[in-house]
């Protein structure tokens, strides 16, 4: 039971790092970026390449994954995404699905379709015995790193000048523009940073879940759930939503009741049903304000 909670926590923290960029950019520009998962996948493959081909340690791969995906994010934002902000949601959806497909096929071409999983660094192998429970060291590491990141994000948002401008822009980009805040520049930076975080999360996660070209689609729904449940106005909402989702997902995989003589894994149902219910009864998210505008 405790192990489930613990695994779920690690998974949830990871989800948060993966999804937070999407939540902020959505709140900021009301832009639907379904290709967010592709950035996470890119980060994961950066780790795979660096570790498997060049024998580098995960500790090097993490920052590299961040920097590379952030750079790609910035490039794409300036060249392509910027042309879509005033288009309809349908067009945004089509465009970002298109990008996702292209990213998936490209990765498939260079890396093959089979799932890849990277080795945990030696120092983090094995479990940490703590009386009755034994905790996986790598997961402790993941939780610690993500917690640090979350705290840094929260501080960055509440204490820095950029943070306050960003919050103003998310609140009401029209008013923020009126106040002379350069929303476009803020958006570009946030987009790149959010993509970088997704890449970082992908790299961090590549030692927990295997990574394959289908990753962006598999995780798309998780990201959307985080946003649906967490809202887009704060980062606490998505954070809580991620933890909830992580725990629910892990628990759902363990708990398989028998229905009519068949063992049924209910994880998926529970999660999707919760999402749909939240969207129906609290369209603004469990913890947040309205999704979209």
């Amino acid at each position: 039971m405790l192990t489930i909670l613990f695994d779920g926590l690690a998974y949830g923290m990871l989800l948060f790092v993966l999804a937070v960029g999407l939540s902020v950019t959505l709140g900021l520009m009301n832009f639907i970026n379904l290709a967010h998962g592709a950035f996470a996948m890119a980060g994961g493959y950066v780790a795979v390449v660096m570790m498997q081909r060049y024998g580098l340690s995960l500790f090097w791969s993490l920052p590299a994954a961040f920097v590379l995906t952030a750079a790609v994010g910035a490039l794409l934002e300036r060249t392509l995404y910027v042309r879509l902000y005033d288009k309809t949601h349908l067009e945004q959806v089509l465009f970002t699905i298109g990008l996702t497909f292209m990213a998936m096929a490209t990765v498939d071409y260079f890396m093959g379709a089979s799932p890849q999983i990277v080795d945990v660094p030696k120092a983090l192998e094995g479990n940490f015995e703590l009386g009755i429970v034994s905790l996986n060291k790598y997961r402790i590491f993941v939780i610690a790193v993500c917690a640090l990141l979350t705290i840094a994000l929260q501080l960055g948002l509440s204490k820095t000048r950029f943070g306050s401008r960003l919050r103003a822009a998310v609140d009401d980009s029209r008013v923020a523009r009126g106040l002379g805040i350069d929303v476009t520049a803020i958006f570009a930076l946030t987009f790149a940073f959010g993509s970088g975080l997704a890449g970082f999360g992908g790299a961090l996660g590549s030692a927990i879940f295997s990574i394959d070209p289908q990753f962006p689609l598999k995780f798309m729904i998780y990201f959307l759930i985080v946003i649906a449940v967490g809202g887009t106005s704060t980062i606490t909402g998505p954070f809580l939503a991620s933890i909830l989702l992580g725990v629910a997902d892990v628990a759902g995989k363990y708990y398989t009741p028998e229905i009519g003589g068949h063992r049924i894994e209910i994880g998926g149902f529970v999660i999707y049903t919760i999402m749909v219910l939240v969207l129906i009864f609290r369209p603004q998210g469990l913890f947040g304000r309205a999704v979209g505008k």
């Binding site: 949601h89 729904i221 959307l224």
Partner: peptide, 15 residues
């Protein structure tokens, strides 16, 4: 909104 619709339709399909 459009976005909620996307998520609900996708969610229902996944269910």
């Amino acid at each position: 909104s459009d976005l909620t619709r996307l998520m609900v339709t996708l969610g229902v399909a996944l269910i």
